[in-house]
């Protein structure tokens, strides 16, 4: 049997040990400072690495387009018929909603509510997933040079995707709403009860801290409350599928199915700024000009 003979020079071991000791000491003694330095230097490094990222992503997208455009066309006719039926239904619903919207506008004008400013958004493309197994994240092709910063909310037309946790010059890492380390302020649309939405290890979400007297039920939609967390009010987070009410507990909780399937999301919108009403405005005080 052929075997590999591995012999190394002795002095390199000392150098390696010295480097290891310096790094270990650094991370133990000055953890935040050292991490800050590496994160700062990582900005340009991330920009350089975004090029191989884009190249691999382009190859990946090309193969994906080829697959979806030519190979995976079975059952398209059936799907088309189904979609036509759905379109007819949605057109009917749309006209009803237009009526409701115009009624709301009239009532809003009557009550002199202040219009909520539209948030500034940046479109970005998903170019990758987390490099490890411990977090559920996606990588975007835009970063600090495009004005993105940590804690900004990320959405699609369907609903909430997650929150930016790290940025380099040309990329951003978004922690998904289904990650257990993520927490977003949520609101049950029907009952107006507020809670905190956290991810679960099964890839779903959990709505916590709902008052015991809440009359929520399965099928209720949960939206962002807009008070904290980088999201304006009213963005869909998920639908309640199960309610957990433990005996003796101070709150009840619910399991949610997220609106956005994060495994299939390809393009997203990053909320750069949105209008948050001040305490005075919420209580009906004098208007304060929103921060840009």
């Amino acid at each position: 049997m052929r075997m590999v003979n591995l012999r190394a020079p002795y002095n390199t071991r000392r150098l390696a040990l010295a480097i290891a000791a310096v790094f270990l000491l650094g991370f133990f003694l000055l953890p935040s400072q050292l991490q800050g330095v590496f994160q700062q230097v990582g900005g340009p490094v991330g920009w350089v690495l975004s090029w191989p990222f884009r190249a691999v992503a382009a190859v990946h997208d090309g193969i994906g387009d080829l697959w979806t455009g030519y190979v995976a066309l079975q059952g398209v006719e059936e799907e088309n018929t189904q979609l036509r039926k759905e379109l007819e239904y949605l057109q009917g619903q749309n006209s009803q909603l237009r009526e409701a919207a115009s009624a709301t506008e009239r009532l809003t004008a009557l009550l002199e509510f202040k219009a909520q400013a539209l948030p500034t958004m940046v479109a970005a493309q998903v170019i990758g997933r987390d490099v490890g197994n411990w977090y559920r994240t996606i990588i975007l092709n835009k970063g600090e040079s495009d004005g993105l910063q940590p804690d900004m909310g990320v959405i699609t037309a369907v609903g909430v995707v997650g929150r930016i946790v790290k940025t380099t010059a040309a990329t951003s890492v978004v922690l998904l709403v289904t990650d257990p380390n993520n927490a977003i302020a949520g609101l049950i649309q029907r009952t107006r009860d507020e809670g905190i939405v956290e991810g679960t290890t099964q890839g779903l979400a959990h709505l916590k801290y709902i008052p015991l007297l809440s009359i929520m039920r399965t099928g209720d939609r949960v939206v962002t409350s807009g008070l904290v967390g980088g999201f304006p009010r009213g963005l869909a987070i998920g639908t309640i599928t199960r309610i957990d009410k433990e005996e003796g507990a101070l709150f009840q909780s619910a399991e949610l199915t997220p609106e956005v399937d994060a495994n299939r999301v390809e393009e997203v919108l990053v909320i750069q700024s949105h209008y948050v009403p001040t305490e005075g405005e919420r209580l009906g005080g004098p208007a304060v000009k929103p921060k840009p």
């Binding site: 190394a8 020079p9 390696a16 991330g46 990758g128 987390d130 977090y135 990329t171 890492v173 380390n181």
Partner: peptide, 21 residues
């Protein structure tokens, strides 16, 4: 060897952490 393993490990760990939470 140790030195190259350590240096490549540190560099790769740093770069990978830039693209992970």
């Amino acid at each position: 060897g140790e030195l190259e393993g350590l240096l490549v490990g540190l560099a790769l760990g740093w770069v990978m952490s830039l693209f992970s939470a």
